[in-house]
């Protein structure tokens, strides 16, 4: 083999050895976009629950309605195998998700239930909203605790 082709071959090998980038897995960006929409609405409710902003029944109800709907987005194409932190860069989704898929799905179901719970009371005043938002945060936390890596 000529020196140049050796160099070429090793260059190809070094590219092959690189982790697959998130851009090559559009599902990762799409599911991150979904979580951004969760946060976009959760911030309204959490801000009121924490007392950062005044309670506003209309704003709270709109955010809760949005959360109800975005948490019902079909997940079946967002979590393909091989899109975990061990396989690719650009995600914090731990391999434990795919090792405990039933539990992961159950926790997502709990998130949907909690979102429904917030939707039911969002317009009923701050005292009604706060525990429901706490339960919603608890549903987020349950997944983050087991299935999300620390940020880098």
């Amino acid at each position: 083999m000529k020196p140049r082709s050796v160099f070429g071959a090793s260059l190809i090998c070094s590219f092959l050895a690189l982790p697959v980038l998130a851009q090559e897995n559009p599902e990762i960006q799409q599911r991150q976009g979904q979580f951004n929409l969760f946060v976009h609405n959760f911030a309204v409710l959490g801000g009121m629950a924490q007392g950062r902003v005044d309670y506003d029944a209309d704003l709270a109800q709109t955010a809760a309605d949005n959360l109800f709907h975005v948490t019902r987005h079909d997940q079946s194409r967002l979590w393909p195998e091989g899109t975990d932190t061990d396989s690719v860069d650009g995600t914090r989704a731990l391999p434990a998700i795919w090792e405990n898929l039933d539990d992961f799905v159950a926790k997502f179901g709990a998130l949907q239930d909690a979102a429904e719970g917030v939707q039911a009371v969002a317009g009923d005043g701050l005292d009604a909203l706060r525990p429901a938002v706490g339960a919603l945060g608890g549903a987020c936390q349950a997944c983050h605790q087991s299935y999300r890596a620390e940020a880098s």
């Binding site: 946060v39 959760f42 801000g47 950062r52 936390q141 605790q145």
Partner: peptide
Amino acid sequence: HFDISAYLETGFTPDFDVVGGSMAA
């Protein structure tokens, strides 16, 4: 000060991410 105390009370960051990993416990 508000952010830190509120985070320890609710688990919500100032950006309304929710606590995870070993900090959740």
